[in-house]
Computed example of a mutant assay.
Amino acid sequence: MPNTAPTALRCLVVDDDPLAIQVIQNCISHTDFLESAGSCASAIEAAAALRTTPVDLLFLDVDMPQMSGLDLLDTLVEPPMVIMVTSSREYAVAAFEHRVVDYLVKPVAYARFLKAAQKALETAQTPAAATPSGGPITTDHTFVKVDNKLVRVAFDDIRYVEALGDYVHLVTNQQKLIVYSTMRAVEEKFPPQQFVRIHRSTIVNLRHVQAIDDNAVVIDGKHLPIGQTYMREVLQRLNKF
């Protein structure tokens, strides 16, 4: 996608159910910042269409014959933004591992559709890179201050962040870093599509969530408690309610 966000997001709907296509197309027609680029009845058809049709946003079903929506994403070198639309809740974690903007469960109500579309619009309007106070940041990594030096950390490598008084404990797949920061600063610095606060003292990377066990998020076998005030947001982000 170009650095300048389009005035309207061009949308391609991919689903093997004609009625489901009709529902999403109707939602698109009622949303002033979206425009339809057509529809495809299979992932194979969509793969061919994407080679010739400029698209900003895919509304993509998961379960389709011959090739699933997730399989389609694996074939795309530079995929557009994606909102999954499916009748199955079980693919939510896998979908977010593919960096989808949102995950809608059928039947789709317009209010929920609009919320997902607005997320896509915000993503399209976010600059590819920015430099906030505290260090440079890009779409795939950040720099954190550790022992008077800046350490580069990839967002994908971060498992979770825990508060430690005036510091935060940043756990990655390679190391554990003690960073002088507040949880609020972490929330503002980390991409909101990828991270969610589950407790006043814990932020987790959605791409590493293995399970929800009672009132805890499970990452790498570790149970991280979900605060009652955060439960609804966590479940909404994982589309599990």
Rank of each mutant, 00 (worst) to 15 (best):
P107Y: 04
V105Y: 05
V168D: 13
L164E: 14
F155V: 09
D166I: 05
L121E: 02
Y180E: 09
L104P: 08
V105C: 11
A124Q: 03
V101M: 02
S181G: 07
V151K: 05
Y180K: 13
P192K: 07
K115I: 10
N173R: 10
V144H: 09
Y103M: 07
V151E: 14
D166H: 06
Q194T: 09
R184F: 03
T182E: 14
I137L: 13
V105L: 14
A124S: 08
L121T: 06
L170E: 05
V161Y: 12
V153R: 12
F113C: 08
L121A: 09
V100G: 04
E122G: 06
L104W: 02
K176G: 01
T131N: 07
H141I: 07
F113V: 05
V171L: 01
F190G: 00
V146A: 04
F190M: 02
Y110L: 06
V171S: 04
Y180R: 14
G135R: 00
V179M: 01
A117L: 05
P107M: 06
Q194A: 10
D102R: 11
A116F: 07
G134P: 02
K145S: 13
T172P: 04
V186Y: 03
T131D: 01
A128G: 14
K145R: 09
V179T: 06
E162Q: 14
K115C: 09
V144F: 13
D140E: 13
N173M: 04
I158V: 15
A129W: 00
Q175F: 03
L114M: 11
V100K: 02
R152L: 15
R184T: 11
K176Q: 11
Q125P: 01
H169I: 04
Y180P: 10
A109Q: 01
A117E: 01
H169G: 05
R152Y: 10
E187Y: 11
V146P: 12
T172A: 01
R112I: 09
Q175K: 09
F143N: 11
L177N: 08
V179W: 05
A128P: 04
A124G: 02
L177V: 03
P192I: 07
E162R: 15
G134K: 03
A109S: 04
Q125F: 06
L150P: 14
V146K: 04
E122T: 13
Y110F: 14
F190Q: 01
D140S: 15
A120F: 02
A116Q: 06
T131G: 01
K145W: 02
T142I: 15
A154H: 14
P136T: 11
Y180W: 05
R184Y: 09
V171M: 10
S133D: 00
A109I: 00
Y180C: 12
A117Y: 09
M183F: 06
Q194S: 07
Q193W: 14
T126Q: 12
Q118V: 14
P107E: 05
V179K: 02
A129L: 01
M183A: 08
L121Y: 00
L114D: 08
R159L: 15
S181Y: 06
D147A: 11
D102V: 01
S133N: 00
Y180S: 15
K149A: 10
Q174A: 10
A109P: 00
E122R: 12
R152P: 15
Q118D: 08
H169A: 11
L170F: 13
Y167T: 12
L104F: 06
V100S: 08
A154Y: 15
V186G: 01
T182P: 02
K149L: 06
R152T: 09
F190D: 00
Q125A: 12
